[in-house]
Nucleic acid binder design. Structure first.
Lengths: 195, 195
DNA sequence: ACGACTATATATAAGCT
DNA sequence: TAGCTTATATATAGTCG
């Protein structure tokens, strides 16, 4: 993507490696930001330079929250794998959730239904485990969204409160203008914070 | 970077948002890999899709090791800041900050000013260091106080938020009771959430 | 929803200051 | 050291099957 094509291996020259690092790093962060905005997804990016400097990008709140989410994800994955005994890796189950439900429903509602042997049932169990994991992930996602929504509501409330406080301050200043020397004699209210 | 330029905002159409997510996600991961190889640095990338699926890339061993490195980095940052704030606990060197500024200004603006010998300069350096430490301590104190004050203001709003969160948790628990409880209490309506 | 295609938009390797 | 420019390599938005 420049004057000539680069081989995909460590750049030998130290100086141009540093230059390339700087350029590509900012490009990568830009693209991470674009992905998070365009597709409305959470993205976290960590880069440690060869000298140990840390460069990071995070779409939403803090990297910490993303990492917490990652930990949750891993735990859920681990749980489902444990339940899975030694079944296949976390490949996507071939069946839709609706399909799975139909199968289970037939098994439960029709005692004579005998098209399943043990192998099929093992497979079904695996698919159900995957579905459960996906469901839990989705649940986590919904709870995260609910939390975000609440935080947004909190923010709005705070803004309203600030507006009200300003109104009150204005009213107070007006009603007491005759008694005191005037607004100029009052130190800014914010100073109270710092004494 | 396609037939037309995209506005930098969430893509409205769900389908093309999904397609773009898929394409850009793989592009981003490719570039993360290239950066780590070309520049011989450690890179970690986490992407959570809107449905809670996790996509990750990691240059070296495991994401876990990168995250550990991140934690260390944060701890070191915190430690250095603490050390900063504590600084030397020695008392004021006897000169006011205004005085110090005057001396430094004379040194800088008048190249002929020769009233300082090395001993005096060492003393001046010490005083400046003390002044800097005091300034940083004061800054830290002010920031802490401002933070405490804001936290106090937030407390009531937070209580409201927690109540709302409990309501949401209750709703979620009711609507997803099928996960935890046995099949007997399994309402099919639950599935609508997870398709 | 998935690939292949292709016209454009971007990223960036060198070069230059 | 760090920008700025430019020629080229890549990425990808929209389209078709």
């Amino acid at each position: 993507m420049g004057r000539r094509k680069l081989e995909m291996k460590r750049i030998a020259d130290k100086s141009s490696r540093q230059v390339t690092f700087s350029k590509r790093r900012s490009g990568l962060i830009k693209k991470a930001r674009e992905l998070s905005i365009l597709c409305d997804v959470e993205v976290a990016l960590l880069v440690f330079s060869s000298h140990g400097r840390l460069f990071e990008f995070c779409s939403g709140n803090s990297l910490t929250s993303v990492l917490e989410r990652y930990q949750n994800h891993r735990e859920e994955e681990k749980e489902s794998k444990d339940a899975d005994a030694q079944g296949s890796t976390s490949e996507n189950g071939g069946k839709s959730h609706a399909e799975l439900l139909q199968l289970v429903q037939r098994l439960v509602e029709e005692p004579d239904y005998e098209d399943f042997n043990v192998t099929d049932l093992v497979e079904l169990e695996k698919d159900l485990t995957i579905a459960l994991t996906q469901t839990r992930n989705r649940k986590t996602q919904l709870m995260m969204e609910a939390k975000m929504s609440l935080q947004e509501q909190e923010r709005l409330l705070r803004e309203e409160k600030e507006l009200l406080e300003k109104e009150v301050a204005t009213l107070m200043a007006n009603s007491s203008a005759g008694e005191e020397a005037g607004p100029s004699s009052n130190p800014p209210a914010t100073l109270n914070l710092f004494q």
